[in-house]
Each structure stands twice: as C-alpha cells, then as structure tokens.
Amino acid sequence: MKKLRNTRLIISTGFFLSVVALGVVGPWVYPVDPFSPSGKRTQPPSWEHPLGTDAHGRDVLAQLMHGIRTSLWIGVIAASIATPIGVLVGGISGYKRGVLDELLMASTNIVLAFPPILLLLLVTVFVPVRTRMVVALLIGLTSWPLLARAVRSQVMSLKERQFTFLARMAGLGDIKIVLVELLPNMMSYVFSSFVWLMSGAMLAEAGLSMIGMGVTADVSLGTMLFWAQMIDAVRRGLFWWFIPPGGILTIMSASLLLLATALDELFNPKLRGR
C-alpha cells in the first residue's frame, strides 16, 4: 500500500511538472509570438507549426505554452486567496460553534450550493476589462467553501484531543489556539487543500473564459477553447486547435488532484473524511 501511494505521488508530480516545464521553458525553446499571426489560417500540424494554426493564423503551440502560464498563474493566486479564507472560516466555525458557527456555515453553504460560474457571471458583467488578477480574485473569493467545511470538521475532531485541552488550561485565547495549536497539526492538510483548490481554480478559469467572461486581451487555455468554440472548430474538424488546450487542462488539473489525494494519504491517513 505504502509503495503504491508513492508511485501515485511520483506519477502525478511527474505529469504536473512536465506540463509546467512546457509552459515555463517552452517559450524559450520555441519563441513564436502567440498573439499575432505567424502563418496561414487553420493549418493542420506541420513541421513549421507542430500543432497547426488557429483561425487567425496564430500558432497553437505558442498559444498553448502561453496559456499554461496564464492558467498556472491564476491557479496559484486563486488558491492563495481561497486557502486562508477557507481555513479561517472553517477554523473559527469549528472551534467556536454556537451562533457564529451557524452563521458562518449558512453563508458557506450558500456560496457552496450556488454555481460559482453564475456568481462570477454576475460580477464579470460589471467588470468589462478583466486582467489575470481580477479573474484570479473572483475565483479565489468563490472557491473556499468546500475547504471551510472540511477544516471545520477537522478542527472539531482536533479540539477533542489532549493538547487543545492543555492549551486552554494554559489560558491561551481561542484564535491563538486555532493558529498556534491546531493549525500546525493541519499544515499538511492545508497544503494538499491548496493543491486541489489550484486544480479547481484552473478549471473555473477555463469555464469562465468559455463563455467569454475570462481574461480579456490575454491567452489562457480557456480563451483558446472559447475562440475554438466561437469559430466552430469542432464542426469544421479543426481538432488540433481545441484538443490540446483541454487535454493539457485535464492533465494539469487531474495530476494536481491525484497529488492532493496522495499527499493526504501520505501525511495523515487518519485525518480524512469530509
């Protein structure tokens, strides 16, 4: 069993890092401008354009490499925003219980039950120019509820243990107990949560872009799919255009999720559950 988990860890990390390498190192090796036409329109893969060109004659491989960067960037920033919110809301809610808990959980459930994409829609309508930062912020602010719920149940179980009791006896304040005593015990969990939040954020970005509500004036994996969809690439059979961005997105997102579950099992097999 132990060995199995490690292979899962290695395989998922391997996949993820190769995609990252493609995005980070790729543009150095393959310095083609993703933003302007570099060949004829809708060319199938060739030596000149390994993944062909899109309907504007832009190189798909160059776009893909740039898109990976954008998606990763948004994933990291969004997860960095969502993780502390989730930990804080879940931590306070699980530790304090009572009315505060009810209120926090009620709002968590509202955000959770609601299709994030709709919430994002509503806001994006009023933000016509969307930089990477804006999109990352929107996704980050709407993707914390699952984490909050998980952290809450963990805090509730950790709270029952001896060291919390001792800390309370020693007269530590509640927030301080959560931060100083409970959080270190959940660090590995928080880290793996960061990983799966990142995985989800990249999917959310692509979903937003798909309906034209993602980053403006930039290339991400989502905007590639958006343009392919707008220009009817599927029905025109331009598979080289729409298959790679979604495939890469799936590989990145799935390898991150696998990584998160492997980390979870590795660090704290007992602390699982929802």
Binding site: S199, L203, A206, G207, M210, L225, A228, Q229, A233, V234, R235, G237, F239, F242, I243, P245, G246, G247, L249, T250, S253, A254, L257, L258, T261
Partner: peptide, 18 residues
Amino acid sequence: LLTINRIPFYWFAMVMLF
C-alpha cells in the same frame, strides 16, 4: 475516475461531439 472528475465539461463535450 479521479481524472474523469477533472475533465472540463465543455471540453469533453467538444471531444464527444467531434
């Protein structure tokens, strides 16, 4: 199953359609 869970809906739809 974990991987399927992460395939973007819309992209999978495009692939299926294709």
